[in-house]
C-alpha cells in the first residue's frame, strides 16, 4: 500500500467523522470528502462505503449520478470557460480553442503537469460581459484570445496565492 494512498484514506476518514449533519448519508459523506480533498479518489469511495455500511458499488451509483463529483485530483488552477449561447455567439469557441491549445488539452480535464484544470461551463451568469471565463473563482469578462493567452502565461509562472 503506497504512502499517499494511506494518507488519502486518513484524510477521507477524518472528513467522514467530522460530518456535523444529523443524518449522515452516502451523499453527505461524498460531499464531505470532496470538500476536504477537492475530489473523490478511489480510496475515499471505499472509505465512504465502510463508513455508511454500504458497498463500493452503492457509493459509486450515487457518486456517478452527480456531475459535480470529481474523481481525479484537480489541477492547481481551475479554469472554466463559458460556452453558453451568449458567450458562444460572442466568440467563446475561439477562447476555448486558445485555452486548449495553450494547455495542451483536447477537452475538459487536467493538464499533464497538474497545474491546470479546464472545465466547460454552461452559464457563468454574466452574459452581458461575454465571453466570460472563471479562473480560480475570479470572473473575467470580455475575454479576448490575447487576454486568455496572457493570463495563462502569467499563472503558469506563479503558484496560486
Amino acid at each position: 500500500m503506497s504512502y499517499s494512498s494511506q494518507a488519502l484514506r486518513e484524510q477521507a476518514r477524518k472528513a467522514l467523522h467530522l460530518q456535523s449533519h444529523r443524518t449522515v448519508t452516502v451523499l453527505s459523506s461524498l460531499l464531505a470528502v470532496q470538500d476536504e480533498l477537492g475530489y473523490v479518489p478511489t480510496e475515499a469511495i471505499e472509505e465512504v462505503a465502510s463508513f455508511t455500511d454500504s458497498t463500493i458499488n452503492d457509493v459509486w451509483g450515487v457518486a456517478s449520478f452527480y456531475t459535480n463529483f470529481r474523481f481525479a485530483a484537480p489541477g492547481l488552477h481551475n479554469l472554466e470557460v463559458c460556452w453558453g449561447p451568449t458567450c458562444h455567439l460572442l466568440g467563446a469557441p475561439r477562447i476555448l480553442q486558445e485555452a486548449q491549445h495553450s494547455l495542451g488539452l483536447s477537452g475538459e480535464g487536467e493538464t499533464e503537469d497538474k497545474r491546470f484544470t479546464l472545465r466547460y461551463n454552461t452559464c457563468l451568469g454574466a452574459c452581458s460581459q461575454g465571453p466570460v471565463i472563471n479562473i480560480d473563482h475570479r470572473l473575467i469578462g470580455q475575454v479576448t484570445v490575447e487576454r486568455i493567452r496572457r493570463i495563462l502565461t502569467e499563472l503558469n509562472g506563479s503558484p496560486r496565492s
Binding site: 458499488n57 452503492d58 457509493v59 459509486w60 451509483g61 449520478f65
Partner: peptide, 16 residues
Amino acid sequence: ITVVERSGTVLVGTSQ
C-alpha cells in the same frame, strides 16, 4: 453491481 450515471447515459455497471 449498481446503476451508474444518469438520464440519457444511465447503465448498469460497477464502481469505476
